[in-house]
Computed example of a mutant assay.
Amino acid sequence: MSVMRAELTKFRSVPSTAWSLLSALTLIVAFGVMYAMVRVTRPPADPTGFDAVEVSLAGVQVAQLAVGILGVMVITNEYASGLIRTTLAAVPRRIPVLWGKAAVLATVIFTLCLPAVFGAFLSGQSVLSAERLDISLDEPAVARAVVGGALYLAVVAVIGLGLGTILRHTAGGVAAVIGFLLGPQMLTGFLPAELADDMYRWLPSPAGLAITTTAPGSTLLSPWSGFAVFLLYAAGLLTLAAWRLRRHDA
């Protein structure tokens, strides 16, 4: 608990943390409302296949970059400033430092992003109601999808922390987060269509974002299966980060 308290204090004291969080929260709501407005001007020909939740949560996919980069900076800022030496001197076993950072980061991101995701959902549905495309929160799978948006962002932040710990450099970590979240989907575009569809559902972002959909369809895994795959990606990166932190000098 003392490690987590220390990590929370450091987390709150860095100015970039507040700006990154503000950016993420703004993107969640703003892009959700903007995309809903676009869809109102271009209503679907067949409303039965329209995913109103996915539209209002469009900002989650944009905000993932902000929280991923924040996860990177949580650790790389300490390496850049030299504070990591003090941190590791206070906790010689090292690994609790990583777990403490991950726990604090995931908790803060989930706690702050959950109201923003709910706000994006409610605002987006208000816009979509003009064309009667909205959906109620008490409809099946809707609440799970909304809460899933905040869960997804929390895990993205932990992935950023893992990549930042492995690379120990802010620019490299930021590039790695962007590549990890967006790169695999781009690469599948060079594959035959059938193979690309089979691989797509297992990629990090599509797997994780399955939890934010109410009707995943054939191109995505089921919501909780996809999120479990996403957690495995995060766990793998954290394991590699723990090995790097333990085996190499600060």
Rank of each mutant, 00 (worst) to 15 (best):
V158I: 07
A143Y: 11
L128Q: 02
F31H: 12
T165L: 03
F230I: 09
Y233N: 08
F31C: 09
L238C: 07
G208I: 01
A235I: 08
R42T: 09
L8Y: 15
Q125E: 15
G173N: 04
A171L: 15
A90R: 13
F230V: 08
E78Q: 12
T213V: 04
R144H: 12
P206E: 01
A141D: 08
P47M: 02
G226F: 04
V38W: 15
E139Q: 10
I211G: 05
V97G: 03
L181I: 10
A176D: 08
D198C: 00
L161D: 05
W224C: 01
R247I: 00
I211Q: 04
W99G: 07
S222C: 09
D249M: 00
T212P: 06
A63C: 11
A66N: 13
M37W: 11
G189A: 05
S123T: 00
A145H: 13
D249A: 02
P216M: 05
D197Y: 11
S136P: 07
K10N: 10
T170I: 01
S218F: 07
A18S: 06
L98Y: 03
L151V: 02
Q64I: 02
S126M: 14
R5W: 14
A18K: 13
P184M: 00
M34D: 00
P47L: 11
F31D: 08
L105C: 12
R168H: 08
S222I: 01
L27E: 04
A176P: 01
G164T: 04
V53R: 09
S225H: 13
G149Y: 13
S16C: 06
F31P: 12
R12L: 13
V40A: 07
P223G: 07
A250S: 11
V3Y: 10
L27C: 14
R93E: 11
P44M: 05
N77P: 02
P140K: 01
S23V: 07
L195Q: 11
A145G: 08
A52I: 01
I159L: 14
G71K: 05
V155W: 09
L161H: 08
L114I: 00
T17W: 13
